[in-house]
Design a protein around this nucleic acid. Structure first.
Lengths: 340, 340
DNA sequence: ATGAAAGCGCTAACAG
DNA sequence: CTGTTAGCGCTTTCAT
């Protein structure tokens, strides 16, 4: 079963293998690359020799020569307080799906987390490294302009985030504004009369969610206020607690920017004796696994993460092929459970 | 602020830059690499030119020449039913920390998820690709033997997982057996008299957790049974539900292999009208964020993920330096909340 | 169908 | 201190 330890590793280069097979390096290269113009017998011999010795071509050398690496860069810019949020479930889940999609397409994934404040050059540096054929940016953070700049001169880039009228970079993301509308409509339909948006309205995705909710609230003559909250769980809990005691009785419908925040909010509401959904209605965003497991289970706006990952990869592949693709805006879906 | 678009990209190679600076490529290479033997003025000129034109050395070429890439491979083998568990929180959180640690040490991270059943050669292939200087394996899955084999001939590899007496590969992980003991002790101290272990005892980590719990149970003369459960949330819920109705009344203390499973279990217990901790005590494992947010909050065995990531990276760095490091076993910590 | 040779972009001797 | 040279391992013309 297991190969001969001595043999393994001794044949390191295509030249070694060529010597063994009694042919030239060029022929080995062609055989292993599956090119048509190689004698069947020669190919067979080379392949069996390669297998026997556990030979694998050096991808760096191959990449250098062919000017393509077979690697896609995935970069997560960490803005403001996102810094703490090391394991943001949503991004991590998206990353998992991306890994699967890219693998399926034969690409490797190079992951980089960057702090744009400390390194203004983060995106150019990654692209210019020569290590990647294309790049997927997960989240626009506060780097919209930088991304726009880069997009002008670099085709194989796709970004997960919010779509804005007339933007120049190719983005894949949920229609956050529509999602916000769905959330507000649900809260109001469930009987809420005074709304609040819980979250940071700095990042564009969240700003759009808030804007959508405000559209609906204004149209229906329902007041809505913003309760600024950081996303890092440690700060969030305290902030939410403060909000809740401050707004006590003045709000009966809360739209949380993410399920994570909603779950935290639920905990704080309970701690203060407020009952969901009877006293306060609550709607989240994302439909992460946790949404099913809270008490009561969360009504939330679902983002289709798997579809997002597929979209990112498919668009990137087309861009790698020279295609100047359009952005892809995915529809959110209201999932009604018991919190509103 | 933003560089001249025309200039950017036009200077692609170290040779281009050398021509501009009126020196040889060798000098540019030395200057950019920060070698000492370069005239201060020359260096300055080269650096400013490099900055001006947004020049970045091609890492593939550099890697090929120096026989090191500055990239660490991180591979997640997906065994049996782990396949579905695309976004297993624990691994994903560990991955996030790894990314941070590696970045801090100046390494890039190449992520690969593999299905060993479909590709017996998964580990050799990654190592042999020439793209990575070392590899971190996240989880032994059912690949213990394969990893052992590779460890014999390849130094720069560190594995997250369970430590077994006399194993040959360098592993970092929590003392699962001790964790299991802590869990069982807590359940019994809280008044449980008939225990159950909820989870799959196939993976070694889980087997060790179960074994630890059994040690305690047997010593104290308390019965304990295993309730085999897959880890993928979709299958788990149904299986847990079945277990709960089957064992009704025969178990008053449950040790779940992970917090995720514990949270699911809590939901199912509630659905059947069983009260935690009054009717049934429950202890989880991991101390993921979700553990604080369940109702009631979970008593659980904490794994220090950040310390794990640091350990993995530090040991790997030492191995890259030729050091044959020992394994690192981290102490688990019982976190008492309200479920037991 | 195969071999020979050039070279991807960079670095590391070795001279000077 | 700097230029020259010879590759790292692979792919790809161009010959044959």
């Amino acid at each position: 079963m297991s190969e001969d330890k001595a043999a393994r590793g001794s044949v390191r280069t295509i030249t070694d293998l060529a010597r063994l097979a009694g042919v030239s390096p060029g022929t080995v290269s062609r055989a292993l690359a599956g090119k048509s113009l190689v004698n069947a017998k020669t190919r067979e011999k080379i392949e069996s020799l390669a297998r026997e010795h556990g030979f694998r071509p050096n991808q760096m050398a191959s990449g250098l020569r062919r000017q393509k690496t077979g690697v896609i860069g995935v970069v997560i810019p960490l803005g403001h307080d996102t810094r703490q949020q090391i394991s943001d479930s949503f991004f991590m889940t998206l990353l998992g799906h991306l890994a699967d999609e890219l693998t399926r397409e034969g690409y490797d994934l190079m992951l980089r987390r960057v702090v744009p404040e400390d390194d203004a050059d983060w995106l150019d540096r990654f692209i210019g490294s020569g290590m990647i054929d294309g790049v997927i940016v997960i989240g626009q953070s506060d780097q919209f302009e930088r991304i726009e700049d880069v997009a002008d001169g670099y085709l194989p880039m796709v970004v997960w985030g919010n779509h804005t009228q007339g933007q120049r970079h190719c983005v894949v993301g949920t229609d956050n504004r529509l999602g916000g509308k769905l959330a507000a409509e649900r809260l109001i339909a469930a009987g809420a009369t005074r709304l609040a948006f819980l979250g940071d309205t700095g990042p564009m995705e969240f700003a759009a969610r808030f804007a959508g909710a405000r559209d609906v609230a204004e149209r229906l003559g329902v007041p809505i206020m913003a309760l600024p909250t950081h996303l890092s769980p440690d700060r969030a809990s305290a902030e939410i607690a403060r909000h809740i005691s401050a707004i006590d009785g003045q709000v009966d419908g809360i739209f949380a920017a993410t399920d994570t925040l909603a779950a935290l909010c639920l905990t704080e509401l309970r701690a203060r004796g407020l009952v969901v959904p009877d006293g306060v209605k609550l709607v989240g965003f994302d439909d992460l696994p946790i949404a099913r497991q809270t008490v009561p289970p969360l009504t939330t706006v679902r983002q289709d993460i798997a579809a997002g990952a597929r979209g990112l990869v498919q668009l990137l592949l087309r861009r790698l092929g020279g295609d100047e693709t359009e952005s892809l805006v995915l529809p959110p879906q209201l999932v009604i459970r018991h919190s509103a």
